[in-house]
Design a protein around this nucleic acid. Structure first.
Length: 945
DNA sequence: AAGAGACAG
DNA sequence: TTCCAGCTGTCTCTTA
């Protein structure tokens, strides 16, 4: 619920003057300009900011429940603040070229909507807002400031709140506290100390918002703090507070908003008036905002929006359906549901889609189910809808208050379960894993859907690498049909409503269309699989993996939140200390997380050697560059590297993982994407459990929080060097294959052959170089890249590569053949026949073409390894069951599988898993190198690995 | 929304 | 000769 819609009766409800909206127009202009892609009227005038602003105004006049309103703008640059401090806002750039002509158009928009539009010479919009807010408050009115500018946060008070129109989020005391570490009444004090680089408010050097908040909380206010500055313990801070006390006081004058401007327009006249429709329309037309015109006209001619009533709604209203007639039916009676189930049984195939409350399948509640048996005919069965959007009145039923008419959920699921579990009826879904998991959860009926076809996986197998595989994208691609967008039905951002609150007629159009498109896709894609020779890939690598992954996601992994919280606390403390040190070394306060600011400090201010880079013109400050600087003895870059590491660990891991623990299961349930990686790999998201730190000592500790249930251990089994083994096999390099068969250290073996050093005399550096080449080869490395990797001259690196190819000509042949095949067919293949399309292989741009060539070289290797582990995963559960073992497969990390195993079964389980993994390629492919899997166990993932 | 940076295999 | 310079991902933060 947004605050825009809460006309809270406060003290002055009786006189009717109760709510004032103050819109910070200037702030909104800049944010709209940057947030929206560029747009132009046919005469070339840029209009994107005008569009964003107009959109906001439309929403404002539609939703407003206040009786007073004004949009307020800044005027010229110079204000009374420049008399206090000449450089105030001096570092602001001129507004961008494309924005300047839009300012006056935006004022036109405000006038067209008949909303009071104010500005005053010499004052900023903020001061006028402060003044009106004070006046309104004195009259007992409520005030809402529509802005997200932090400088306005000092005005928040009982009865005065803010509303961020871009994020659709209310800003009250709590949000202010979150931002400044103090309540609104102390915001000015904090800002005076911390200063503001954007507005060029100086503040006190070495003090940022965090320190400022801490000081103000300790001393109460700025004056007290400055008076007692002698007491500060930290010498540098004490000195700065004394030395820059006056500067802090000046900053306070800059920051504090003036709330007694003698405004020209009295508050009483800022009343809400209905806009003149013709004026609005002519403005929209002048701007050529076609979508807004349509929306506005639709609202004018409203009244005919009601739906047909309780019965089946024929012909999906609103969604264009160029493919011919469609008939979507709302199923609200048991008899109708039974008819659809009979239809599905008769056909033997039914497309199914679920509507839920969340994109996260482990948290989603079932809201409805749609089904389609033949193209153009589909139904939607609402199960968990509530009264939203006043649909009770639209449907004209008795208004019983229990939500719209629908078959009781459990009754409907009782009828659907036998169909969904019937082995003789094929269920077709798009992204089946999601729906399977939702339906499998006890809370949603515990339905185990089988057998299943997945149109998303089919598209992935057929056209992986060419495009995405979402239903909307495929409908467009294959049928030229534009699906109704989820956002059009539910909105987005904070104003988004749950699907359960969508009116049934709208829900029908949206949900039935998905089932309809799924059935159409199935009829289009399924016949292509055998034609392309890809049926086996789909049937053995992808389709059987769906229930396996569903089980893994449902199982989740236990995570101890206390371990993570303790680490977070430790990280926070050390981050604070590092920040102080870094600011001291830099000689000024800046945002360490901003590469732009860091670059300016490093290269402009401190004059360290380094260069500009790329399109944005910002300095590059990547780890490699900072490491170079650190190696030259500079402390600041070294500390920044430490800071970055800790900051990453804290925000991405220790903090985020605690949040990801499912409150019902106490475990983290990732979601695997089967179509996200072009090579055939899985990817993991929400949260990503495939990139939990391990390489650094510090990060590795995070794995101690991943634990087994009591009585169990974690078992980690990973393939040793699987990609190099596959290279040896695919490129058929006899000496490498022999080395793998003999169990020799492969990098040492390579070094020995390429550099002619006997194995017995191998030194670590030579071995390291050979290792870099081995891995580099997999990725299609260049002499330049290898040189950078191992820290030598490109000329030397080139010699190494030449020597490597001299010794292993098979690898060069493989690379050339692979590139040729990609050029010939547009794709490359793995040893199991999976295709990976390489669309850029014929690009005229040499850089892009080279990029595609490297991808082509890598894809069969990475993809074959992905195929191998997928085959293992499909076989593991049956193998465990055969052996009577209870282990649960929890995670896959590309070449590793993680299990939770009863302590008593560890040895047997290890044996079974290892056997399955090492023989996973067979019998389809007889590898000429052995696959080796290493196992480890422990109470945590850290120990098991 | 895009870029930069950092984490994994 | 020019291009750029190691593949596959996800997540967070900043900035325009």
């Amino acid at each position: 619920m947004t605050d825009l819609a809460i006309p809270e009766d406060q003290t002055a409800a009786s006189n009717g003057d109760n709510h004032l909206y103050l819109v910070d127009g200037s702030g909104y202009i800049f944010r709209a300009f940057h947030a929206l892609p560029s747009m132009n009227r046919s005469d070339g005038t840029p209009t994107n900011a005008v569009f964003g602003f107009t959109n906001m105004l439309l929403k404002l006049v539609e939703d407003i429940e206040a009786d007073h309103v004004a949009v307020i703008f800044d005027t010229k640059r110079l204000t009374f603040r420049n008399e206090i401090f000449a450089d105030y806002k001096a570092n602001r750039d001129e507004p961008p070229e494309d924005l300047r002509p839009q300012f006056s158009l935006i004022r036109d928009a405000v006038r067209a909507f008949n909303v009071p539009c104010l500005e005053m010479e010499g004052y900023e919009a903020d001061d006028l807002i402060a003044t009106y807010a004070r006046q309104a408050k004195e009259k007992g009115m409520r005030v809402t400031i529509v802005s997200s500018d932090k400088d306005l946060m000092q005005l928040v008070d009982d009865g005065v709140d803010m509303y961020d129109p871009m994020k659709n989020r209310a800003i009250g005391r709590d949000e202010v506290f979150e931002k400044f570490g103090v309540g609104p009444e102390k915001v000015v004090d904090v800002q005076s100390l911390a200063g503001d680089s954007v507005d060029n408010v100086p503040g006190v050097p070495g003090i940022g918002i965090k320190t400022a908040a801490q000081l103000i909380n300790e001393y109460g206010d700025l004056d007290t703090l400055l008076a007692r500055a002698e007491e500060i313990k930290q010498p540098k801070r004490r000195q700065n507070l004394i030395e820059f006390a006056e500067q802090a006081r000046i900053s306070r004058e800059l920051v504090r908003l003036k709330d007694d401007v003698s405004v020209e327009e009295p508050l009483e006249r800022l009343t809400v008036e209905d806009p003149d429709d013709a004026t609005v329309l002519s403005f929209l037309k002048e701007m050529e905002f076609k979508r807004l015109i349509a929306r506005f006209e639709a609202e004018l001619s409203d009244g005919g929006a009601a739906s047909a009533g309780g019965g089946p709604v024929e012909g999906s209203v609103g969604s264009p359906s160029p493919e011919g007639d469609v008939a979507y039916e709302l199923v609200q009676e048991i008899a109708d549901l039974e008819r659809w189930i009979a239809l599905a049984r008769a056909e033997g195939t039914v497309a199914v889609d679920t509507e839920t409350s969340s994109l996260n399948a482990m948290r989603a509640e079932l809201v409805g189910v749609s089904m389609s048996v033949v193209p153009g005919k589909a139904c939607y069965i609402p199960l968990g809808h509530t009264d939203g959007e006043a649909q009770g009145s639209l449907l004209g039923d008795s208004g019983n208050g229990d939500g719209p008419k629908q078959i009781p959920r459990d009754k409907a699921l009782g009828l659907l379960k036998p169909l969904f579990e019937d082995p003789s009826v094929l269920k077709v879904l798009h992204n089946a894993k999601y729906d399977l998991l939702v339906l499998a959860r006890g809370a949603n009926g515990g339905v185990n859907v089988t057998p299943v076809d997945d149109t998303m996986c089919m598209s992935y197998v057929l056209e992986g690498g060419l495009h995405g595989h979402g239903l909307d994208e495929l409908s467009e691609l294959h049928f030229g049909h534009t699906n109704i967008k989820f956002a059009d039905v539910c909105g987005k951002g904070k104003t988004q409503i749950p699907f359960s609150a969508v009116a049934l007629d709208k829900a029908l159009d949206y949900a039935a269309e998905d089932a309809d498109m799924t059935v159409r896709l199935h009829r289009t894609l399924r016949p292509e699989l055998p034609k392309a020779g890809l049926l086996t890939v789909y049937e053995t690598l992808e389709r059987p993996l769906i229930p396996v992954l569903t089980r893994m996601e449902k199982a989740g992994i236990k995570v101890d939140p206390q371990i993570l919280r303790d680490m977070s606390k430790d990280f926070e403390k050390r981050l604070d200390e590092l920040a102080v040190e870094i600011h001291k070394l830099a000689g000024e306060e800046f945002n360490i997380g901003s590469p732009k600011q860091l670059g300016e400090i490093l290269f402009d201010r401190m004059g360290l050697p380094g260069g500009k880079k790329g399109k944005t013109g910002a300095y590059a400050t990547g780890a490699e560059i900072l490491e170079d600087l650190a190696a030259q003895g500079h402390d600041l870059p070294a500390r920044v590297l430490d800071w970055r590491q800790l900051s990453k660990l804290k925000s991405t891991y220790t903090d985020a993982l605690v949040e990801a623990i499912n409150p019902e299961t106490g475990r983290i349930h990732t979601s695997y994407s089967m179509t996200g990686a072009s090579t055939g790999r899985l990817s993991s998201n929400d949260p990503n459990l495939q990139n939990i730190p391990i390489r650094s000592e510090e990060g590795r500790k995070i794995r101690t929080a991943f634990v087994a249930e009591p009585g169990n251990k974690l078992l980690a089994v990973d393939y040793s060097q699987i990609e190099l083994r596959l290279v040896a096999h695919i490129a058929n390099i006899e000496s490498l294959k022999q080395a793998f068969r003999d169990g020799i250290d492969i990098h040492a073996q390579t070094a020995s052959e390429v550099f002619g050093v006997p194995l017995a005399e191998m030194d670590p550096i030579t071995r390291r170089n050979a290792k870099a080449i081995n891995f580099g080869i997999i990725y299609g490395i260049s002499a330049f890249g290898l040189a950078r990797q191992i820290g030598t001259e490109p000329g030397v690196a080139k010699k190494y590569i030449d020597a490597y190819f001299e010794r292993f000509p098979g690898i060069r042949d493989y690379m050339n053949e692979t590139k040729a095949a990609a050029r010939e067919t547009g794709y490359v293949t793995t040893i199991f026949g999976r295709r990976v399309h390489i669309p850029g292989i014929k690009d005229n741009n040499p850089a892009r073409r080279a990029f595609s060539e490297r991808a082509a070289i890598n894809a069969p290797i990475q993809g074959s390894a992905a195929d191998v582990i997928k085959r293992a995963m499909v076989r593991i559960n049956p193998a465990l069951a055969d052996a009577g073992l209870a282990a649960k497969m929890l995670l896959q990390v590309h070449d590793e599988l993680l299990f939770e195993v009863p302590e008593a079964e560890i040895e047997k389980t290890t044996e079974v898993v290892r056997r399955v993994m090492e023989s996973a390629a067979e019998p389809v492919v007889e590898l000429s190198v052995p696959l080796v899997a290493d196992a480890g166990t422990g109470d945590s993932w850290a120990e098991a690995h």
